[in-house]
């Protein structure tokens, strides 16, 4: 078991290292001088030279790469050109919005999808199944920003229960901050849970056809008990895989929803940094997003091992 984890951990670190090289190289081989790109074509040569100096662009590539890596390890990520604040501070500030939003959305997604998916599978080819699948189809087909706007119209404009957008900040008003995340989380969860419910349904249906579910019934378990005790855990592998992808997606910031609700999240940060050509921020945020995906995949790998004992033996 521990051998498996150590091996996965090594693979995880190797992936992280490889992605850092790719991200660094891609931004390195971009045509043109980064300082010039950041300042624009009309910039004074003096200003460009000063920025080159400040960014340390005169130093050899490998030195800059290792400096950058070291920066990640020590939390010293350099300074944003446009915001004139340390990139780390900028990212942490944005994560305080994006991470809770992703967590709430993922929690809603998981609860809705597992309940709906298992229910649909248990009522396979009967009205309950059709109903759930109809809603899932609608959820997938509906653009989430449009659904977000509808939620704003109903709950903020008509009923006045929520603010239409904005984010007060956790220090100033934690409850209002939480409320500010609810509508966007629901808009995100609608689409994600529709997808996940379909995956759950088909996975549970597959498992229900397995011999061991019949064995469980032969032991005297009711259909429902056989499904929950013997079916669900086996059905979880594909579900957990999709959940990992969804969580990675949500954590990377959801540019459109963040814009609809005026949330200062990570998605808006990268959107703004790209439009303002703030390459320092872009490079760090992209690396962070990639790292999050790799970390989530690593966690999912570990979850597989928890779910399925057959994966515990090192092959």
């Amino acid at each position: 078991m521990s051998a498996v984890i150590v091996r996965r951990l090594l693979a995880f670190l190797a992936t992280l290292l490889a992605t850092s090289i790719v991200v660094f190289v891609v931004l390195e081989v971009l045509p043109g001088d980064p300082a010039q790109v950041m300042l624009g074509v009309d910039a004074e040569p003096d200003a460009v030279a000063r920025l080159r100096e400040k960014l340390g662009l005169e130093r050899p590539t490998t030195v800059r790469y290792f400096d950058w890596l070291l920066g990640f390890a020590t939390g010293n990520l350099g300074e944003s050109y446009t915001y004139s604040v340390p990139v780390l501070e900028l990212i942490v500030e944005r994560l305080a919005v994006t991470v809770p939003l992703a967590l709430i959305a993922m929690l809603l997604t998981t609860i809705i999808a597992l309940a709906a998916g298992v229910f649909a599978a248990a009522h396979h080819n009967r009205p309950g199944d059709w109903g759930v699948m109809l809603f899932a189809q609608l959820g997938i087909a509906m653009p989430n920003f449009w659904f977000g706007i509808l939620l704003v119209l109903l709950f903020a404009v008509t009923l006045g229960w929520f603010n239409a957008g904005g984010f007060p900040g956790w220090e100033d008003d934690a409850l209002a901050s939480f409320q500010a995340l609810l509508l966007p989380a629901v808009s995100l969860a609608i689409v994600q849970s529709a997808i996940l419910a379909r995956v759950t349904r088909s996975s549970v249906l597959d498992v229900l056809r397995e011999d061991y579910v019949r064995t469980a019934r032969a032991k005297g378990l009711s259909k429902r008990a056989a499904l929950w005790r013997h079916g669900l855990r086996n059905a979880l592998i594909p579900v957990v895989t999709v959940m990992g992808l969804q969580f990675a997606f949500l954590l990377s910031g959801t540019i459109i929803i963040e814009n609809v609700f005026y949330l200062p999240g990570l998605g808006r940060l990268i959107f703004q940094s790209i439009s303002q050509r703030d390459l320092v921020v872009v490079k760090d945020v992209v690396m962070l997003m990639v790292a999050k995906v790799v970390i989530i995949n690593f966690v999912i790998d570990l979850l597989y091992v928890v779910i399925d004992p057959r994966l515990r033996t090192a092959r």
């Binding site: 011999d211 019949r214 469980a216 032969a218 032991k219 005297g220 013997h230 086996n234």
Partner: peptide, 19 residues
């Protein structure tokens, strides 16, 4: 089932729950 009536299946590999 399981108490007064019990059954053994053909394929023990798939009839046991792997998890």
């Amino acid at each position: 089932r399981g108490d007064r009536l019990a059954m053994i299946f053909q394929e023990p590999t798939t009839a046991l729950n792997p998890v």
